[in-house]
Write a protein that binds this DNA or RNA. Structure first.
Lengths: 339, 339
DNA sequence: GCTGGCACTCGCACGGACCGAGTGCCAGGA
DNA sequence: TCCTGGCACTCGGTCCGTGCGAGTGCCAGC
């Protein structure tokens, strides 16, 4: 068990290192922090912290830098979440309030988050798994061609073009549209399959039944596909402030950012709305081993429908970043609830 | 006027420099290219080329590298467009063909272009300025709340939520929907304003007229807003292969890539479908002064509806890049025309 | 007008010396 | 028992001098 003072030393090391980006030595520490002890004592504490694996020396005879384990302890026990100031909160709210549609909300959120944290921001679109169908629209484009438009309660719209096996009349189309909507409007995505399975039987013509089946399968396909989350990223220019040894550090990060799958995993598969910090190697994806991810769920009601977060160097200002992420998530939730 | 051989020397310099990324000297040139003359002669030619501003020395007593002007000449007169091989063309076609919707087409195009050129790819969504309205859908969400869905012939769908000044009945809504569609379906965006301006008069109730006016203004607003182009970028990881002096080169590029406006300008405002190469300082935006942009229009029919291109270092393989860009544009056009 | 030769320039890589921040250890004191 | 000041030691970073070699410009000769 580490003594109170040693934790204090660790905190000081993390803070200094985050600030200066340089290994911090015992003398500099006592000068910048009121630890009340001499450098020699701090050296002993540092040796102990190093034995425990919380800090490390990049080279012999250099200062210490925190390890992933050290940051972990810092985040868990030594640092709180730094709340946003009132003016900052107001600015966030104002900025998000003038969004015109869902895309715009997400785009603004990304920009905001990137600016506040000066890191790379990632925002997942509100998930469709928990959302409901608001309306299904069918439009005749050509005799044997129908466009399917799906509108969700989160304001998302998806469309698909369908080639029908046979021409489909306007009246049949209107009929199908009405039947479809009366069954699925307001229902959850997951309930849709069983609600529509007997729909083809309502049509007398064999050809129409074929078309209806085609339309339904496209609808179900769309539901499944769009349940996969989309996301938006921004602030990649902040990667340039990452570290000194550029190409090697930045490359895998940029690559990871282009892989939606990786990013989604990064934000955390579980729909756990709590804030989560993953430090360095805690991110399964190698190449992100020198980055940390701060993510949190956000949602329109009480429940989280998606996640957002930032990706930055392990050497980041955790309290500030966590504060910004939490605040943005809260206000995005509000905006979504209002619309 | 430069002699034939001097042009040949310039071509050799560009090719070698693009390949090796190192200043190229007279001796190396004669070894790698069959110029039929001695290094000394080449040196004289190089001196002449330098006088004319086509090449430069990074330091005294170093080899030469092409200037922007040199690349310009190379692109205009010395290099053709390197066509894709048959297997490559087939691969492009196959990859694009399995797209499911417009977003997917654009996403695939970006990835393809980035992979083929190993550079940053930018693809503009098909423009709405020349496109027509396929359908306008109005959905009642609440007594005084209507959702407007606009579907274009390029397959794009936009939606807006509208708060009405007064409750609006289902029948009035159906009436408005029918009138609206009969007027604007199939018409160009630019024609819509005058086609709908007298619509409110068709409604007797003053309250309804207010709502109709609100709906119409939202529709027009959407048309205008969405005429602004959206775009998608990819392959940013390729930026790491940019050059040696990293942070300084890459930073402004990443920043520029986040600014839609800048990017749109980069692709070229004019709807000129011809392939265009902008080299270094020819890009108005400073910070992109060491990058070149190869862009070309693409379209579903004969006319270009949008542009796509790649952004890379001025030291890029112009013939290959131009070939890839042209090929991709052609096939995207085909895919769009089919759907 | 091309060529070979020659003197010159300079960036770069290598290696030694120096400096200083930082460490570990130890003996002495509260 | 814990803290402190002192001391010897380590070693990365910087500076400097040297030598090498690629590359240049110029010139006389073919």
């Amino acid at each position: 068990m580490l003594s109170e003072r040693r934790l204090e030393v660790l905190r000081a090391i993390v803070q200094d290192y985050v600030g200066t980006e340089e290994p911090v030595g015992s003398k500099a520490l006592t000068e910048r922090h009121k630890l009340g002890v001499s450098p020699a004592t701090v050296r002993n504490d540092m040796a102990a912290l190093e034995d425990e694996g919380y800090i490390a020396q990049p080279h012999t005879s250099a200062g210490r830098i925190p390890t992933d384990k050290g940051y972990r302890l810092f985040v868990d026990r030594l640092a709180g979440v730094k709340p946003m100031t009132a003016p900052e909160r107001r600015a966030i709210q104002n900025f998000l309030e003038c969004s015109v549609d869902l895309d715009d909300v997400v785009a603004r959120t990304v920009r905001l988050l990137a600016q506040l944290t000066r890191q790379v921001a990632v925002v997942q679109y509100p998930s469709l798994t928990r959302s409901t169908v608001r309306h299904v629209e069918l439009l005749s484009m050509a005799p044997a061609r129908v466009m399917l438009v799906l509108i969700t309660d989160t304001g998302r719209v998806e469309q698909r073009m369908i080639d029908c096996p046979a021409p489909f009349g306007e009246t049949a189309l209107a009929d199908l549209r009405a039947r479809l909507n009366s069954r699925v409007a307001g229902r959850r995505f997951t309930d849709v399959p069983q609600l529509v399975q007997d729909l083809p039987e309502a049509f007398e013509e064999a050809e129409d039944r074929g078309t209806v089946t085609t339309v339904l399968s496209t609808l179900l396909e769309t539901l499944v596909e769009e349940t996969e989350e989309r996301l938006m990223i921004g602030g990649t220019a902040n990667l340039t402030r990452f570290g000194h040894d550029f190409p090697l550090t930045i490359r895998p990060v940029l690559e990871a950012l282009e892989e939606q799958v990786v990013l989604l995993k990064l934000l955390g598969e579980a729909k756990d709305p709590a804030m989560r910090v993953r430090i360095g190697h805690e991110n399964a994806h190698e190449g992100l081993s020198s980055t940390s991810v701060v993510s949190v769920g956000y949602g329109s009601g009480g429940e989280a429908v998606a996640k957002l977060g930032v990706v930055g160097p392990t050497r980041m200002d955790y309290p500030g970043t966590m504060g910004a992420v939490r605040a943005v998530a809260r206000y995005v939730g509000q905006i979504l609830a209002e619309s």
